[in-house]
């Protein structure tokens, strides 16, 4: 039962615990990184390097009054935050961490993730609508439009990878990158996917559903305590998921770069997987530090007029090349 193999209880527990811990710790990482990039310190008081800040924040958020506004739709209001947590956590089930480390080898892994991402959009929409607050309403309207359209580009951009590897199974996609990572043949797909995943996790510059300067806190204006905490941590799990996906799909997952070290060791695999993922996480934070927010209609037209054609052309060319090679 305590073997290291896909789907064993030990691995499942470790992944679930690891994902939640790392996501919570990402809050600290983001604040410290932003501090570095913005000429200030960031949280550095609780514990060494301020690492205990997350624990203190958790205490605070757990002990806060769990308030439901009297004018809200109570049931939906309470159901909405867990949806985003659950959907994104479920997505991690198909992420291959290292050889033999993962929760399930689903042959439709990629589709599973896209499906879960679609469901997560409900959380944001329902949360906003149930709040019965005008700012929340504006936020969830923006979220609905943004997430639904960027899912389209996200899906299309991934098809190139699927065509090259011939499978939806993420573990097999990693295996098929032994000869070369997909970042080279699928560079444009990577760009589209990276942008779309920022939009999916609604972080700056695409944080329109919660644009503080415009609509206060958007869809989670009325949320506090642990319900807010779930949206908050959900966002960071989303960042982790998007970074892990970029690693798995375009950067060879657990495979070492340039053949450094052993290829199929579990420890080395976990190390490379984590390292690559963290690089993308830092990239997410850097974007937040650097880029201003486009307007709602600019965001939409950028998606439909730039990203959609780009991903379609990428798909066409990939198909043509495969056809040509096959012939």
């Amino acid at each position: 039962m305590f073997d290291i193999e896909v789907g064993s209880a030990l691995v499942m527990g470790l992944i679930l615990g690891g994902v939640i811990l790392i996501s919570a710790w990402l809050i600290w990482l983001e604040r410290r990184l932003l501090g570095v990039w913005q000429d200030r310190l960031g949280p550095n008081r609780v514990g060494p390097l301020g690492l205990g800040q997350v624990i203190a924040d958790m205490f605070k958020i757990f002990t806060k009054e769990d308030w439901v506004p009297p004018f809200a739709d109570k049931l939906v209001f309470m159901v909405a935050p867990p949806i985003i947590m659950i959907c994104i956590l479920l997505s991690f089930a198909v992420i291959p961490i290292a050889p033999n480390v993962g929760i399930i080898d689903l042959n439709i892994g990629l589709l599973w993730i896209l499906a879960m991402a679609s469901l997560a959009a409900y959380s944001v929409m329902l949360g906003g609508l149930a709040s019965n607050n005008k700012y929340a309403l504006l936020g969830s309207l923006r979220a609905a439009a943004q997430m639904v359209s960027y899912e389209v580009f996200m899906g299309i951009s991934l098809l190139g990878v699927v065509m090259l590897s011939g499978t939806f199974n993420l573990r097999e996609i990693v295996e098929s990158q032994r000869d070369g990572w997909y970042i080279l043949p699928q560079f444009f797909a990577f760009i589209v996917f990276a942008i779309a995943s920022v939009a999916e996790s609604h972080r700056l510059p695409f944080d329109l559903p919660e644009a503080e300067q415009e609509i206060v806190a958007g869809f989670h204006t009325e949320y506090s305590g642990m319900k807010f905490g779930m949206f908050f941590v959900g966002e960071y799990i989303g960042v982790l998921l998007a970074s892990a996906l970029m690693t798995v799909l375009f950067f060879g997952g657990w495979l070492p770069p340039f053949g450094i070290g052993p290829e199929d060791s579990i420890v080395a695999g976990i190390f490379w997987m984590l390292l690559k993922t963290m690089v993308f996480v830092c990239f997410f934070v850097l974007m937040r530090a650097a880029i201003p927010r486009p307007r709602y209609d600019q965001l939409m037209s950028y998606g439909w007029l730039v990203l959609l054609p780009l991903s379609l052309i990428n798909l066409l060319i990939t198909g043509a090349v495969i056809l040509f090679q096959g012939a």
Binding site: L34, W37, Q38, D39, R40, L204, P205, D207, A211, Q213, R288, A289, A290, I291, P292, R293
Partner: peptide, 9 residues
């Protein structure tokens, strides 16, 4: 306009 860093500089 959503650009968070300049104000700190």
């Amino acid at each position: 306009l959503g650009q968070l860093s300049p104000i700190f500089y």
